[in-house]
Design a binder for these strands. Structure first.
Length: 371
RNA sequence: GGAGGGAUUCCCGAGUUGGCCAAAGGGGGCAGACUGUAAAUCUGCUGGCACUGCCUUCGAAGGUUCGAAUCCUUCUCCCUCCA
């Protein structure tokens, strides 16, 4: 079946909405945060741990899985669900972000994008059609259209050309996509130009996708710019379709995104900074490697109920990082994921109970002065 | 007892035709970054200070020299080989 999003409640004072995303692998309460498992694994986390911490839907990546182990193999071993043993819903990104992040390793043409593998330098051509084929083999519940994540800063001319190309690619993706049990989301681009965002949104809405990604944000622009683009873009999208802000996941951005009508988020931040020794807390960021935690018996966050916080001291986790022990990365990732998942749960409840403003304000307070 | 080699900044370890050496590099330590993952990664700092300069430092003491981690003398300690 195609995914379907139903609204439970709309916030009166903001664009925020509480809803449910129905998928053939179960319902997902929104707004939701999706942990990122680029290579069919959320780095260092086992599926049962993700489930236990409250993760409901995961993201994986077409480009990376295409290179290794190959989509045919994943398909043969039961698709992504069977391969990585995750029974909940999965979303695959198209490789559009790699068009951006792989920079010099790729050439963009109208036909598609020529990549040089970051692994062995071999050449590969990604077209909207080939990406659809790959994503269908991977078999996620939601497949993202092949787009170009535009770098920042970019000129108006470049942004316009790239955005229009992404729209043409979206149409090609839609035409090429055949799998009935998978939903294809289009992706709004437009850089930091309001009129281009509008052009992009209109073009995509016309194609009628079951959901829409908002891409090309959080690529280096100031946060107020991103928020401005966001609150301009979401009202241009259909009320009854889910909106997915791609690649965003710092606690403050999640709150601001929800307030602007975003239903889905994904981000590598919790797992990446976790592996690198930084954790989110109700008081802001905390770099657990720092000397001041050497003898600290407290948990990472005294208000947190995650496995790491229920069982271990800052002193111990710092020790794990300082000795390079893998468990440190695992505990910090566990905590950070739980923290964001819990944050989203709080926001969902707040929308439902009509007190989003207060909750958002409280959650934001810890992060305001951070950046 | 005899012959030889060596002691360098927190650690290991370059540097000994005297100036370009507060002294390579690595480790450790300290701090920072990270937002659809080329990331268990990357960056900066790591003698002191009133810091575009000055002061103290290369086992210890003394000496040569305009100038010494680098040359000379004595001493202390370590290692190897022969007895």
């Amino acid at each position: 079946m195609k995914v379907k999003w139903t609204c439970i409640k709309k916030d009166r004072r903001s664009l925020a909405r509480r809803g449910t995303l129905w998928t053939s692998h179960g319902p997902v309460e929104t707004p939701v945060f999706m942990p990122v498992g680029t290579q069919a694994t959320v780095k260092s986390m086992a599926p049962f741990e993700l489930e236990e911490m409250g993760a409901r839907i995961l993201l994986s990546n077409t480009y990376h899985l295409y290179l290794r182990p190959g989509a045919q193999l994943v398909d043969k071993l039961g698709g992504l669900h069977g391969f990585m043993k995750w029974d909940g819903p999965i979303l695959t990104d198209s490789g559009g972000f790699q068009v951006f992040s792989l920079g010099p390793l790729r050439k963009i043409r109208e036909e598609g994008v020529e990549f040089r593998s970051h692994i062995d330098g071999s050449k590969h051509l990604f077209t909207p059609e080939s990406v659809m084929q790959t994503e269908e083999l991977l078999g996620a519940d939601i497949a993202m259209a092949f787009d170009e994540c535009i770098p920042y800063p970019a000129t108006y001319e470049y942004t316009k050309a790239a955005t229009e190309r992404t729209s043409r690619w979206a149409a090609r993706c839609k035409a090429a996509h055949t799998r009935e049990d998978q939903s294809l989301f289009g992706i709004v681009q437009g850089g930091m130009f309001a009129d281009l965002r509008k052009l992009s949104a209109q073009a995509l809405v016309e194609m009628d996708f079951p959901g829409y990604g908002i891409g090309g944000l959080s690529v280096g622009e100031e946060k107020p710019v991103m928020y401005e683009m966001l609150e301009y873009t979401t009202p241009l999208l259909p009320e009854d379709k889910p909106r997915y802000l791609m690649g965003v996941g710092s606690p403050d951005c999640l709150v601001e995104g929800v307030l602007r009508g975003v239903d889905m988020f994904d981000c590598v931040l919790p797992t990446r900074i976790g592996r690198n020794g930084t954790v989110f807390t109700s008081q802001g960021k905390l770099v657990i490697r720092n000397a001041k935690y050497k003898e600290d018996p407290r948990p990472l966050d005294e208000k947190c109920g995650c496995y790491a916080c229920r069982n271990f001291s800052r002193a111990y986790i710092r020790h794990l990082f300082n000795t390079g022990e893998i468990l440190g990365a695992r505990l910090a990732s566990t905590h950070n994921l739980y923290f964001l998942l819990n944050l989203m749960a709080e926001l969902r409840l707040a929308i439902q109970e009509d007190r989003l403003e207060e909750t958002a304000g409280r959650l934001l307070a810890a992060w305001q002065e951070e950046k």
